[in-house]
């Protein structure tokens, strides 16, 4: 009976992943076709096959360039960022045993914004590369502070969350201090826009870097998925089931920090995805992490690509910050799940 249940679960996951890969491909194709200047899907397809050297179709060079150099890289980075944030959220919700945990709970986004502000306002370095580096350094500084305050994240979930809150407050205060004392109105606006997240300006090199980070982190997380399940009844219970609790915690906190810092440094602090997508995934494939982690990553990827399309379509002639769209698109969707999953009492 239970082996059937297991096979049922595995085939259900396989079906789910198959469907979500197809949906993701359609979403990415749509993202490459839709824009201020719409391009037919056929041209999109031929642009890609041309670039890959599979075809030599005659299409306008400008359209091929827009598809390949601007929209496709942007859509794929959106997919990776969505997958990464959702994965981090699922892991932190399990490790911290808190349904409200999300990728930024350990102060990573606050640290990243301080780093970014140092670059934008104080002008340490110049150009977009140093903005990313500044954000990355800030994110890791915040994570190091949290790790220090929580004894390498071994002090229990609430202690770790409090350490994260303290680090977030500190770095947010630093950001505000720097902006108010030395920034002008335009700089403040730049910072604000950057914080809400944007996929504008991302290119292929960003995709390769983020792709490697996401794949490595996802692999590590899948290898530790069984151990994450053992945290269902708390740390001590996990230890009694033979899980090296301190090591798993430290490795997974490190992985989420690396992944979140990389994403934030490229596209800003995009909220909501990391909090909500794991809950949606749990609703579809259940709470066990061998299924939950890949499902969260896929849903996060699809969701982010669609949110990015929406961000370019909602207002004509301008792009709404992606963080605004993830909340606008996501909340109604999440409300349905919350309503349908409410306790039947």
């Amino acid at each position: 009976m239970s082996s059937n249940a297991m096979e049922g679960g595995a085939s259900r996951l396989a079906l789910f992943l198959f469907i979500s890969v197809i949906v993701l491909m359609f979403a990415v194709a749509a993202a490459a076709a839709i824009g201020d200047y719409n391009i037919p899907v056929k041209t999109v397809f031929l642009s890609v096959t041309n670039e890959l050297g599979l075809t030599k179709a005659e299409i306008p060079p400008i359209e091929q360039s827009v598809v390949w150099n601007l929209r496709l890289s942007r859509a794929l980075i959106a997919a990776l960022a969505g997958a990464g944030l959702a994965l981090c959220g699922a892991i932190l919700q399990a490790l911290l045993r808190n349904a409200l945990a999300e990728p930024f709970v350990l102060g990573v986004s606050a640290g990243a914004s301080t780093g970014a502000v140092c670059v934008i306002v104080l002008g340490i370095g110049a150009g977009s590369l140093s903005l990313s580096l500044g954000a990355f350094a800030g994110a890791f500084a915040a994570f190091a502070l949290v790790a220090l305050l929580s004894n390498g994240a071994t002090s229990g979930p609430n202690h770790t969350i409090l350490a994260g809150v303290a680090a977030s407050q500190l770095f947010n205060a630093l950001t505000s201090y720097i902006v108010t004392t030395s920034g002008n109105a335009q700089q403040a606006r730049d910072v604000m826009f950057w914080l809400l997240g944007s996929f504008g300006g991302v290119r292929w090199p960003d995709f390769y870097l983020l792709g490697i980070v996401v794949i490595v982190c996802l692999t590590i997380c899948i290898l530790m998925a069984r151990s994450l399940d053992a945290f269902t009844f708390g740390d001590e219970d996990a230890a009694a089931l033979g899980v090296p609790v301190a090591r798993i915690r430290l490795v997974l906190f490190g992985v989420t920090a690396l992944l979140t810092a990389t994403i934030v440094s490229m596209v800003g602090a995009i909220g909501f995805v990391g909090l909500v997508v794991p809950h949606a995934a749990r609703y579809v494939v259940g709470p066990m992490h061998m299924r939950l982690l890949p499902a969260s990553a896929m849903i996060g990827a699809v969701f982010m690509v669609i949110a990015d399309i929406a961000s370019r379509m909602i207002a004509t002639q301008q792009t709404v910050p992606i963080g605004v769209v993830t909340a606008l698109v996501g909340v109604p969707f999440f409300a349905i799940i919350l309503y349908r999953a409410r306790p039947q009492i």
């Binding site: 239970s2 249940a5 045993r97 349904a99 269902t232 009844f233 708390g234 001590e236 219970d237 009694a240 749990r282 259940g286 709470p287 066990m288």
Partner: peptide
């Protein structure tokens, strides 16, 4: 453990 609890929506089988 004594009365270990969880908020996760797991089944007896899980």
């Amino acid at each position: 453990q004594q009365s270990a609890a969880t908020d996760t929506n797991v089944t007896v089988n899980d």
